[in-house]
């Protein structure tokens, strides 16, 4: 127990990186996902296909492989990324594909009459999408996005393999130092669980607040 308490600051620092990677990747993932969803639904054939292939590849390959490609693979093309940067990039691209699926579903659920009403008042299609369809789609997408977000939080543990000292790697470093496993793994499991629960709670609140109508 003392062992854990002594090393709590170190673990908290790891948790901070886990959160940071989650939030940054989710932020860029949301942007990538929204653009991809619009490209798939409203783009011309070229953009539609690019978006479709992107989503298909990301969803059809292990995230660990994607992380290795970005961190180790890109070196072959002269692109050497720091491990944290590589983590941001790999996870943003990964999460973007899942976010786009959530957005795509949500955009399709917004009734066609909404777009028609907007067009009938003289808006262009782009204006109708931006002002009328997307705001409604975002609200619809919050529950599935919440799941994606919590999934992301846990998936960040994968970037421990490229030496990002987030929560998982923090534990591994401590284990290498003290040769005890269970206490550290249990502690980080608890920490992941707390973070997931807090996120879920915040997202539920957000969902309630946005569904005022």
């Amino acid at each position: 127990m003392d062992l854990i308490i002594d090393n709590i600051p170190f673990l908290l620092k790891g948790a901070y990186y886990t959160l940071l990677i989650t939030v940054v990747s989710m932020f860029f993932g949301l942007i990538i996902g929204l653009i991809t969803a619009i490209a798939r639904l409203k783009g011309n054939r070229f953009f539609r296909n690019v978006a479709r292939v992107y989503v298909s590849i990301i969803r059809g390959t292990p995230p660990l492989v994607q992380i290795f490609i970005v961190y180790f693979g890109l070196v072959d093309f002269g692109i050497e990324l720091g491990s944290l940067t590589a983590a941001y990039i790999a996870l943003s691209i990964n999460i973007g594909a899942y976010v786009s699926e959530a957005f795509r579903g949500a955009i399709q659920v917004v009734p066609a009459g909404q777009t028609e009403a907007a067009l009938a008042t003289g808006m262009t299609e782009a204006q109708a999408i931006r002002r009328i369809v997307i705001p409604q789609a975002i609200r619809i997408a919050i529950p599935p996005l919440g799941n994606t977000f919590v999934g992301m939080l846990k998936e960040t543990s994968l970037v421990s393999v490229i030496a990002v000292t987030e929560l998982m790697r923090s534990a591994q470093l401590l284990i290498a130092q003290y040769y005890v496993y269970m206490p550290f793994y249990l502690t980080i499991a608890l920490m992941y669980w707390i973070m997931s629960t807090v996120f879920t709670f915040i997202l539920n609140k957000l969902e309630k607040r946005l569904s005022v109508y």
Partner: peptide
């Protein structure tokens, strides 16, 4: 044409948000 034309729908289609 749409700038000069108003339309009212059976299902109202008001923006709920």
């Amino acid at each position: 044409v749409r700038q000069d034309t108003g339309m009212v729908f059976q299902q109202f289609n008001l923006y709920p948000h």
